[in-house]
Design a protein around this nucleic acid. Structure first.
Lengths: 350, 350
DNA sequence: CTGTTAGCGCCTTCAA
DNA sequence: TTGAAGGCGCTAACAG
């Protein structure tokens, strides 16, 4: 008989090894192999050694799907963000992935692109893949989608959004801390006319930042006219437009705090085009500390929001909900901190 | 008897519905339900309707793990990158994910952080999760890891690295095209002293860019002294350092082409600090067209490398390897294109 | 066109 | 300390 040439000769060698192969090789039952992997302390030292040798020899590694099927745990943590290309998110993704992997989990990342159909699809995928928990770091999320997740008993963690309840936790960022530092810094330099450019006020976090700013001004007994409370959209364009309006004011601010760095970058560009020198004519402070801030010209003074920490906390919160880690003392809060670079100085003399 | 209070009362309601629940509800066998999902054309219209109604009613969705186990296909596509926070990658990730989802796949993203232990872990995870294919978009990858993947018959696609063979394909970027345009643009403006700042020459793509530059100069019969062939590391710092050296030259270049945008950003910063006005005193061209390029001051002229396209091609290549899509005519090549903004102009008069 | 049956690879009682 | 047997939820022959 002729050999079957449709299959490469080594097809069998390449086929994935199962627990059964290992069992045969080590002369034990598959149960024993399973235990060698999951509960080695139950095996006799000698048996364990033999099984491990077989595992190495055959380059065996367990099939995650099968494990998940039988155990009901997928060892996948979901992460939903609004837009990967928003410079705020890569750091979050990076850290979240690291934290997950460190714990033997994989991360299923998915972005909504601010689109509600995609949002539904995201949740659906999380459900189908049976994620053990999901971090929702997007600005908005339909309630009925959250309901679906909740129905399926999937632990969730949000960023500044919901009030924690069973299986739902919340990473809270102390926006106020950094903003107080920023305003104190500016006031210390002698500024009295400080404007703020908010983000989209549909975002809870944008509202929080603005409120914190207003409060900080009050603390320093500084005036806060409505025309100094501008708003943008957390993008460069929004910063530009807001700055255009600020420029037209009869009495301009001598310093500006922006709700995020992209906004601040827009402000810097427009200010320069208008002939202002930064920081001589105008001090500027951003928020987030995306890496670009450091490479602006001049380097942007900004309030650092430690995103690695946010991701870390989110992961922890999920593990706590899963009963795999002990709850932290206190809440999952993350501090912010002013990073002074070169866009702030004393106000210009009139 | 007292009810078991350790379980919430609605535990059964929340437990995930299986194909069996649907079958019972619709009064058919589980096979029929399976077919309603996978091969609806085989069912009688009426049965199909009934099953679908049951699916909706029970909010049933299939268990991916079980499907994967039995079908041997995980419907996961892996993506390995070196560093998510490198601004080159978010676009790749975003598009890759979209393309995967569009085809009913999920993307398993994972970053090596230039660390070889993590690299091995990445591959291991891909293997354990049984990915149906993997795109390797990292600068370097150990051969033995590739061997592991190959052994497991996992289709792979690389970026400019290997020579295609069975189950291994390659997205090739036409670096030369954009670089020729760039040099032609500069030459057309009257520049004759053009320098190049390369990336790390351990990267194939960096070498390709440099070679293309040298060739383009030759095409225009422009001189190419060794001191105009600088090198950096594809980061901002590298651009700064290289520019420092260029600045010390007795006869400086009037234009600089950088191997990527980060390098160009470094060049711009250092040039400005040295008192040069851009583009009046020095023309600069970057490579990649990361979004920051557009928001530089002045906006950076650069060569666009369409990363969405790269991701799209990578995904296609994988599907072709899986026999799910017809091969494209020609190869998986991606063109590059000069984007003229405001960092280039005629050379300064001596 | 629909149902019955036999696993996919693994974990987990239960017995030995 | 180890093994045998059942089943997780689903798909894919094979019958009817």
């Amino acid at each position: 008989v002729l050999p079957d040439l449709t299959q490469p000769p080594s097809a069998d060698i390449a086929s994935r090894r199962t627990i059964r192969h290992v069992a045969k090789r080590a002369n034990v039952s598959i149960t024993t192999v399973s235990r060698a992997i999951n509960r080695p302390e139950l095996l006799e030292a000698d048996t364990l050694k033999r099984v491990r040798a077989a595992i190495d020899e055959l380059q065996y590694y367990p099939n995650t799907q099968a494990r998940a099927l039988v155990s009901g745990r997928s060892r996948i943590l979901g992460l939903i963000v609004s837009d990967i290309t928003n410079p705020f998110f890569p750091d979050i993704i990076q850290s979240f992935e690291s934290e997950a992997v460190r714990r033997g989990y994989d991360a299923l990342i998915s972005s909504t692109n601010y689109d509600s159909a995609r949002m539904a699809l995201c949740v659906r995928r999380m459900l189908e893949r049976n994620v053990d928990g999901v971090a929702i770091m997007t600005s908005e999320m339909d309630d009925h989608l959250i309901g679906q997740l909740e129905n399926s008993r999937v632990p969730m963690v949000f960023l500044d959004v919901v009030t924690p309840r069973d299986r739902i936790s919340n990473v809270v960022v102390d926006y106020a801390g950094g903003i107080q530092q920023a305003v104190a810094h500016l006031a210390g330099l002698g500024h009295t006319r400080i404007a703020f450019i908010a983000g989209p006020l549909s975002l809870k976090s944008a509202v929080l930042r603005r409120e914190a700013f207003v409060r900080a001004l009050a603390d320093h007994q500084l005036p806060c006219p409505a025309c100094f409370l501008e708003s943008g959209n957390h993008k460069v364009e929004g910063g530009r437009a807001a700055m255009d309006r600020l420029l037209r004011l009869p009495e301009r601010p001598t310093a500006i705090v922006a709700s995020n760095d992209l906004t601040a970058i827009g402000v810097m560009g427009t200010a320069r085009k208008a002939g202002l020198q930064i920081p001589r004519d105008l001090s500027i402070i951003g928020f987030d500390d995306i890496w670009q801030a450091e490479y602006m010209d001049p380097p942007l003074t900004t309030i650092r929001l430690p995103r690695e920490r946010v991701a870390e906390r989110a992961c922890q919160a999920l593990m706590v909900s899963l009963g795999l880690e002990a709850p932290l003392a206190g809440d999952y809060s993350v501090a912010t901190e002013l990073i002074v670079r070169e866009t702030t100085t004393t106000p210009p003399q009139p």
